[in-house]
Design a protein around this nucleic acid. Structure first.
Lengths: 146, 146
DNA sequence: TAATTTTGCATCGTGAACGATATAATTCAA
DNA sequence: TTGAATTATATCGTTCACGATGCAAAATTA
């Protein structure tokens, strides 16, 4: 068999696996507060800047609106955000944090550090992380054609 | 806002995004042959060693059987694999490649190289790839508790 | 201004992921 | 050997992802 067909030689499989396992590691920390990982990502975006249209949130996460719309509708049902038509542009749906959405920022304050520690190992540490970030950023930049 | 809450500072988001975008890059190459990326992963496992029980395939991919079972059922429906009860252990479901499954190996022979080239950039190349692989492998090893 | 194109969002269908649960076969222990 | 625990797989429900499509509002162009 050609060596390229070996799972061990494939970058995508590593990214796919590492991503899934790390998301799984977030699970207990987030489900405790009724959140999924993609919902947590939306919160990160809104904590940074509240009252954004669906499209801006989607772009920030490199997702399509057909993924983000139902996701945010579920968050609305949970009372984490509100959705209301844009005043300047009636096509836009502006997403705003509720008090509950802001409160979650306090409740989840230790999550980033906990997750950072979860991956610290011989080859990935405060010294080498920038290199890893650079490589992943370059891969993302190369692949996002839109 | 605490800097840890910035999307830019989070490893998981990078892995999640890079994984999704790279899987999307596989899409045109695979859908042409009626395959999805996870189905392609199952083929990689079976090309390496045919006639494996569901559990071995799942373990190799770090997935649960409740993900792999329906996935393989779909592949069976497409005529890519067959499923039959294990003779030694009647609980096992042995998955075997059909002729169509083996033929796909020839049809997809250029995929690994094409995907490798798709991510080559300044910081990720033949020289630096081993470092990236090592870091991702260490992260995976640290996270797979089972 | 009227007609056309583009944009922003929503809906639908399909295929993962994955927690929870069920079932049958095997193994282990009393 | 019988009963209990374990193992291998399957099923179910929910939530992403994402291609395809639809629709209304806005922007562009004739």
């Amino acid at each position: 068999m050609r060596p390229e067909f070996l799972l061990e030689n494939q970058l995508c499989f590593r990214l796919y696996t590492a991503s899934r396992l790390l998301t799984q590691a977030y699970h207990p920390l987030l489900s405790e507060h009724g959140l999924t990982y993609p919902q947590y990502l939306v919160l990160l975006v809104l904590w940074e800047k509240d009252a954004q249209p669906v499209n801006d949130i989607a772009k920030r996460l490199y997702l399509e609106t057909n993924t983000v719309t139902p996701l945010i509708q579920r968050m609305e049902k949970e009372g984490i955000v509100t959705r209301s038509k844009g005043e300047k542009d009636a096509r836009q749906m502006i997403v705003r944090l509720t008090k509950k959405g802001w409160d979650l920022q306090v409740e989840l304050v230790d999550v980033p550090t906990a997750m950072g520690n979860a991956v610290i190992c011989e080859s990935v540490n405060t010294e080498t992380a920038p290199e890893l970030f650079k490589m992943l950023d370059d891969i993302i930049a190369k692949l996002k054609t839109k």
